[in-house]
Design a protein around this nucleic acid. Structure first.
Lengths: 211, 211
DNA sequence: TAGATTGTTAATCGATTAACAATC
DNA sequence: TAGATTGTTAATCGATTAACAATC
């Protein structure tokens, strides 16, 4: 099941989605080979970093030609764990939650949104694509029935931790946190911050302090 | 204008938004002091990291008490450059673009969305809160008139680079990229990837490979 | 005063880059 | 063959943690 024995360092994992996106585009264009140099230029890295990163995979390039795009694509898909689909719920049916539930890129990449929840009674039953907004008390049932393993927390900061706790109790193993708050979770559960607001603040800093 | 002479390392800047969010919550609760230890516990860091981070600011704590919350909040606001409001446009009026244009957290944190654009003629004129969707050709005018300095790129991957180029030509100094593609920009322009899709892929990896 | 907590230096750890032999 | 490009080792760089004197 696992592509390689040794764990891949976090810094490398963070770059894998961009490699995948670029390599998939090449595959669509029927390009068969790609060099570490081209990847580096296109993704703003050095070729050294690219080759170092790929050394963690059970996958080799060929001198003078580079890496075979389809093989590389498959390897990345396997390592990223997107060779089978994931079932995901969204908690929070505000503008952002609803948009994420409808975001076409998610199912296209193997993330099926199977439920959207909100605690606000006035939102219940509201149609969001094929789904309708369900009350929080139905969260455990839906998670159990659809074998949901990830949850997207799209609620205001003050509610983020308690929603995360509900998702964790219900058995979810990964959380995507849209709020700027820090979420605490046992280390059997991975939490990744989406950093939308944080990114704007970072931008604000770098725009302010560049000459 | 600038809070400190020496540049703050990127690793530190990335943590500032979370410090700010936590300290603002404390200020609302009228808590006056916070220790490096409490911050570390709440944000999943070590107290050493917290003190090291704060050493880049013109701001000191006091032995036995810690850091004064209001002063720390002001310092973070200043360093992050959110002591004055920013004008922002959104390009792409799909589900995600519209949700971001309506996201209450942005104006609350000083990011005013002053325009939303799409190249799809069927979307033109569509109401998004107080705004209506404008054609791409009006981008430069709106950017000039409102002194817009940031753009949110919420279009499909294939269009991301060309939209970024238009925004850059129109004079924007910071880009928030919602797509998974890499965007190339001159180094007078900062680009930050929002990593929504990338985060789900990262989660997928870590959920797959945790025992 | 005694003890808690800062600020800072030094040590460790991890990530990136450089360099180059191996190879196609 | 000659030259381009990989894979890998070693060097550099940066970020995190440990430790502790200074201080309130």
């Amino acid at each position: 099941m696992h592509a390689s024995k040794k764990a891949i360092p976090p810094s490398v994992v963070k770059r894998l989605p961009k490699y995948l996106a670029y390599v998939q585009a090449l595959c669509l264009e029927k390009v068969e080979w790609v060099s570490s140099n081209e990847l580096a230029e296109q993704l703003g890295l050095t070729s050294s970093t690219v080759r170092q990163d790929f050394s963690y995979f059970d996958f080799s390039g060929i001198s003078k030609r580079g890496y075979e795009t389809i093989g590389l694509q498959n390897m990345l898909i396997n390592i990223l764990g997107v060779d089978t689909a994931w079932q995901v719920v969204v908690v929070g049916a505000g503008n952002l939650g609803r948009a994420l539930a409808l975001h076409e890129e998610f199912p296209r990449r193997g993330f099926n949104i199977v439920g959207i929840f909100d605690k606000d009674p006035t939102k219940l039953g509201m149609k969001v694509g094929a789904l309708d907004v369900k009350p929080m008390r139905e969260l455990p049932t839906v998670i159990g029935r659809h074998k949901v393993n990830m949850g997207i927390v799209a609620v205001p900061a003050v509610a983020a931790q308690s929603v995360a706790d509900l998702l964790i109790v219900a058995g979810v193993k990964g959380l995507l946190n849209m709020a700027l708050t820090h979420i605490v979770a046992p280390d059997t559960v991975s939490v990744i911050d989406s950093r939308i607001v944080a990114s704007l603040l970072e931008l604000s800093h770098s725009v302010s302090f560049s000459r």
